[in-house]
């Protein structure tokens, strides 16, 4: 039983997982781009390679898990457009997973001792973040704010590395091991497999943008000229 996992909330990533035993998910193949702006180029060829190497027909997948963000919009949409289309053509179920859950999964596996925060870059001097408990249950978020608004807890993820000094100034503790970690398709897919096995409800594939489009109604539309 195979699951294809896709996340593009940071760098493009994809993984093909064997999930028959949810407590022993095996990685058949995985891909993570080293660039942060090549989602539309790199993702589809990577998925094709994963399937070819496994000589697996997409129609035989048990499902597709996709990270629904939060993350920079353009990259995020590449993953969602890809996952939705693959799901439609192959006729396999699509499951949404909040992207920060992927880092949470890795953090819990590495051992956490208290509530903690997962944060990734949201650009514009902000981070996308969420608060979890020691079991990995989501307590708060996802949010998008400056790091000064984060609770003073251990912080995991690339958002922590990016703003480590400012975070430490607020009393938060930056996880050294995770300071460059982005959501990975492997962790996202593994988490999805366990949730599916436990019969938990999954998210839809609606993107979590957390920000409006920023479009402003021009002055002349409001009755002012020039």
């Amino acid at each position: 039983m195979h699951l294809l996992a896709i996340d593009t909330s940071a760098n493009a990533s994809a993984a093909l997982l064997e999930i028959s035993d949810p407590h022993n998910v095996r990685i058949i193949g995985s891909f993570t781009s080293v660039e942060n702006n090549d989602h539309a180029e790199a993702l589809a060829p990577a998925i094709q390679m994963l399937l070819n190497e496994a000589t697996l027909d997409g129609k035989n997948l048990a499902g597709i898990a996709v990270g629904v963000g939060p993350g920079p919009f353009t990259g995020l949409r590449v993953g969602l457009a890809t996952a939705r289309t693959l799901s439609f053509v192959w006729g396999v179920p699509l499951h949404g997973v909040m992207s920060l859950d992927a880092i949470c999964f890795d953090a819990v596996r590495s051992g956490v001792e208290s509530d903690f925060i997962v944060a990734i870059d949201a650009r514009r001097k902000e981070v996308y973040w969420a608060r979890y408990d020691v079991t990995g249950a989501l307590l708060d978020g996802p949010n998008v704010t400056v790091v000064e608004e984060l609770p003073a807890l251990p912080v995991y993820g690339s958002g922590a590395g990016l703003y480590s000094e400012r975070l430490e100034a607020t009393g938060a503790k930056v996880s050294e091991e995770f300071r460059q970690t982005n959501p990975s398709a492997v962790a996202l897919g593994t988490r999805a497999a366990q949730r599916l096995a436990a019969g938990e409800e999954m998210l839809s594939s609606e993107p979590l943008y957390l920000r409006e489009s920023d479009a402003k109604v021009p002055a002349v539309m409001k009755g002012k000229l020039l």
Partner: peptide, 16 residues
């Protein structure tokens, strides 16, 4: 950004 959505979907469609 608009092109990117159509291209990503088209690639997925071609691949699948």
């Amino acid at each position: 950004g608009a092109l990117m959505v159509g291209v990503a979907a088209a690639k997925a469609l071609a691949l699948a």
